[in-house]
């Protein structure tokens, strides 16, 4: 690991001020530290966000759940409020990595990183999330830009993620057998505006499958998508799963999620 400067910010303002194109925020460190150790990334400055008050915590209002950005996966998975309001979100958090990762990794870090195989981005899309930063509010559909790419600008810090509480929802994940990230993860949610089918793992970035979403908006049953062909074009292909296999899994897991709703 290359040497770097470590800062522990008191508040969001300080953290933002310290940041540059050669810095990273340190939340759970579960992505940043392994990449630094493996020599895949190096930074001049690491800015710890974990000591900033008010960035962590779960608040339920009538229609939404707002989760502070440094809230750990384990806290979401064990939260009574989350389990009651959006059980599929708690289940998603429970399915991330292993206990060590869940006890350190954070929701803000996960979505800021936007790994194409990460779980949370699908929840953001399916549950019409709004990402609150120190500068603005960003709709999930506009937040995830591409592989490891988001709408965040240098110095912009996620403060919280606000999810709509859906009528019903379910998340199904086919984990990569080695890493246990999603080879395909499908989040189905029936929200006020209609049904969302958010897919992670399959392509370079999470996406809302409009065909599946609109078919299910009309008829929320697994047979409603029988006739829909999922094209494998644009899907990832690697030693673990071909594009063709991923396309199949999107459909099978959408059905499974609908049936489990």
């Amino acid at each position: 690991m290359k040497t770097f400067n470590y800062h522990s910010a008191k508040d969001v303002k300080e953290a933002s001020k310290l940041s540059s194109s050669k810095s990273a925020f340190l939340a759970g460190g579960m992505t940043t530290l392994p990449s630094m150790k493996l020599g895949l990334a190096s930074y001049n400055d690491l800015i710890n966000l974990k000591n900033i008050k008010n960035l962590s915590g779960i608040k339920v209002s009538g229609k939404t759940i707002k989760i502070g950005s440094t809230t750990k996966h384990a806290e979401v998975s064990q939260s009574k409020e989350v389990k009651k309001a959006i059980p599929s979100l708690a289940a998603l958090a429970e399915g991330i990595g292993d206990p060590q990762v869940r006890n350190r990794g954070t929701i803000g870090g996960s979505i800021a990183n936007n790994d194409p195989a990460a779980d949370y981005p699908s929840a953001c899309i399916a549950l019409n999330a709004v990402i609150h930063t120190n500068e603005r509010k960003i709709e999930a559909e506009k937040f995830f830009k591409g592989m490891f790419e988001t709408a965040l600008k240098t110095g912009e810090i996620i403060e919280a993620v606000e999810f709509e509480i859906p009528k019903k929802s379910n998340y199904q994940k086919y984990p990569n057998p080695a890493s246990r990230y999603a080879i395909v993860g499908v989040y189905v949610a029936e929200c006020k505006s209609g049904v969302n089918v958010a897919v992670t793992g399959a392509k370079s970035c999470v996406y809302n499958d409009k065909n599946l979403s609109s078919a299910l908006s009309k008829n929320f049953s697994s047979s409603a998508i029988d006739g829909i062909e999922i094209s494998s074009s644009g899907m990832n292909s690697d030693i673990h799963a071909s594009a063709e296999y991923r396309a199949n899994m999107v459909k099978v897991f959408t059905k499974k999620a609908v049936e489990a709703c």
Binding site: N176, P177, A178, S179, Y181, I239, H240
Partner: peptide
């Protein structure tokens, strides 16, 4: 070696 870490080598 493509399977040079636990991200790709399935234990």
């Amino acid at each position: 070696l493509v399977t040079a870490s636990y991200m790709d080598y399935t234990m």
